[in-house]
Design a protein around this nucleic acid. Structure first.
Lengths: 234, 234
DNA sequence: GCGCTTGCTTTTGTGTACACTTTGTGCACA
DNA sequence: TGTGCACAAAGTGTACACAAAAGCAAGCGC
């Protein structure tokens, strides 16, 4: 069964949104996209509807489709929700995973470490996406899966700032995250829900600070004034 | 702004699925529905895509749309997931609700008690749906909302068996559930997250047994054989 | 100079024809 | 009688044309 150009369009738009190749809030023109993917407007619109259903885009009547936005208020909600949902999904994954799925997870982790090693930020982000998505499949819970998939959209877009390492400290953090993934695989394979939960929460503690810098840039040093001009000191 | 017939189609199909007027797993024929709602197949298909995105229907390529099914395996997952998600949403609702939303919730609760009083099962189920949906809006968390909406589809379909009271015991249970709703409104208004969580879990303990009978019919009495024919006793 | 209206352009929404896929039925043949 | 194939019927997927709405800009009055 050959992959239809409609499916390709769907997957490609997904990828481009996740990698912020299509920027959050950006406009999606029907005519342009249908020409680009070589399909007519009707199936393209169906693709956009599906993407809207999964939270990748937002449809506005008579005003077309826009890439799902990422505002600061949403980020607070994101970091509030993600650890809880990922932990619960991890717990269920440890209970319900199949051996085949563990192989999938291991393969994805291989892709991730390879991407990190060659400094391919978008590939790393997409592999990380796939990693957590496989854990979601293991959990075998369609209700939480709907939540996870929405979280993963923002997670993946944010994670690129995590994998775009600038200093030695950042590199070390990426290494720690990778070994946490290995530990997660081990805990899931061993069917140890409690350990999976603990590891998941650790994983989020590590990521949070680094990712938040993406939406909250480093604050200016507070003492530049006092050092140079004591009159304006706080 | 007049309500377009497309929106009406969307809302009506939603309602008919939630009330099991359209039975789980049932086939949805495009030609029939487009004739029924007076719109052509193109917009009807968009409606079906949207319903699929929200988990009301399942689309199969070249094989049309079917109403989301409710199997026994899914029910186990449902009762496993719902208390946790509802409790977390309730907690956030207590923290983030606006006074306007509390009025919405109170009005919905009035509709619900009215429907119960006149024995209107489907109206009760739909009001119950609206009640928990408003709490979801209060939580102001799009990630959990996606999960809640999927849970509410099955919750509403199952709740009809809860509101279809047959005996005095069932009637009492419905009354208890209604007063739990009142207590929930009070706790949310008072911004007491812990109390909301406790009440939500109580609410689920009450519903679970009664609802499970819908998918798990009363087992046959175990001792019919032993009473009549001692030779076949266990 | 400013704001409003009006007509033009661009983009989205809907209807319809037609192509393709699936499924059911009848017939030939073993 | 059972199996396989061909054809017919029904239903879904795609393309395109036209209708409707929104955005834009020039012209007009104040």
């Amino acid at each position: 069964m050959q992959k239809s150009s409609k499916d390709h369009c769907f997957e490609d738009l997904k990828r481009r949104i996740l990698t912020t190749d299509l920027p959050p809030g950006g406009d999606l023109d029907e005519a342009t996209l249908s020409a680009l993917y070589g399909i007519s407007r009707t199936p393209l619109r169906e693709v956009l509807q599906r993407l809207a259903g999964e939270g990748f885009v937002r449809l506005e009547t008579n005003r077309g489709a826009k890439v799902a936005s990422m505002n600061l208020i949403a980020m607070r909600t994101f970091f509030q929700t993600a650890p809880m949902v990922y932990a619960n999904i991890g717990r269920l994954a440890a209970e319900n995973r199949t051996t085949e799925q563990i192989e999938d997870l291991t393969a994805t982790q291989r892709d991730l470490t390879a991407a990190i090693r060659r400094g391919d930020v978008t590939a790393a982000a997409l592999s990380n996406h796939a990693f957590h998505h496989v854990i979601g499949q293991m959990a075998h819970n369609p209700y939480l899966m709907a939540c996870l998939e929405r979280l993963l959209i923002d997670h993946t877009r944010l994670s690129q700032t995590f994998y775009r390492a600038t200093g030695a400290e950042d590199q070390a953090r990426i290494g720690t995250a990778a070994s946490q993934h290995d530990a997660l695989i081990a805990a899931i394979s061993a069917a140890e829900p409690d350990r999976v939960i603990a590891l998941t929460l650790q994983h989020w503690d590590l990521s949070r600070d680094r990712m938040e810098r993406f939406v909250r840039p480093d604050p200016l040093p507070v003492d530049v004034i006092s050092q140079k001009d004591p009159h304006h000191a706080l």
